[in-house]
Simulated scan of single mutants.
Amino acid sequence: MRIVSFPLAATLLAAGMLVASGAHAQTYGPRDEGRRFDDGSRVVCHDVEVANNARDQNRVAGTATGAVIGGLLGNQVGKGNGRKLATVGGAVAGGLVGRNVQGRNQERNGQRVVQTRCERVYR
């Protein structure tokens, strides 16, 4: 017979209790709308418009492209340390502009879908 250490045994016991008690979030769907519970809460559903368009939600491509172009343009200005500062400033500004341009394009060209979301309301 193998003896299990106390911290490991306590961890296993706590994990078993969580699983047994159903310590996961309950999800509700449109079929549950109006369902009432003993504590006075009920399930409410509402339609939400969701953008389904962005493969690059963090807009990395636009930011990177803008930063490269801005850095190249900034490098054309000044001499010595001024040129280095202009390159960095151009890269930062270009990254911000590229991110915003990509975001506007994603909004304009995006597909929107309506989803029904249900939640338990405590009142």
Rank of each mutant, 00 (worst) to 15 (best):
G95D: 06
E33G: 02
V43L: 00
T27C: 07
R59S: 13
A20T: 10
R31M: 10
T63E: 03
I69D: 06
D32C: 03
G94E: 03
G74L: 01
F6W: 11
A67V: 00
L85T: 03
R99D: 11
P30N: 05
N100F: 12
A25M: 11
Q111K: 12
T63I: 00
D38A: 15
T116N: 01
G34W: 03
R2D: 12
R112H: 08
R104N: 10
M1C: 12
T27Q: 09
G110D: 03
N109F: 10
V92Y: 08
V121P: 11
M17H: 13
V92C: 11
D47P: 01
E107H: 14
A64V: 04
G78N: 07
R31K: 13
N105Q: 13
A91P: 04
R35H: 07
I69S: 07
G90D: 00
A20Q: 15
R35F: 06
S21I: 00
V50T: 04
A10H: 14
T65W: 09
Y28M: 02
R123D: 15
P30T: 07
G94V: 01
A54S: 08
N105W: 15
A93V: 12
L12C: 13
A61V: 15
A20H: 15
R36W: 08
V114M: 08
V68E: 00
A25I: 11
Q26P: 09
V121K: 14
G16I: 09
G103L: 08
G70Q: 03
R108F: 05
V114E: 07
G94R: 04
N75R: 13
V68Y: 01
Q115E: 09
A61Q: 11
E107I: 06
V50Y: 00
E49F: 05
E107R: 15
R120M: 05
G78K: 12
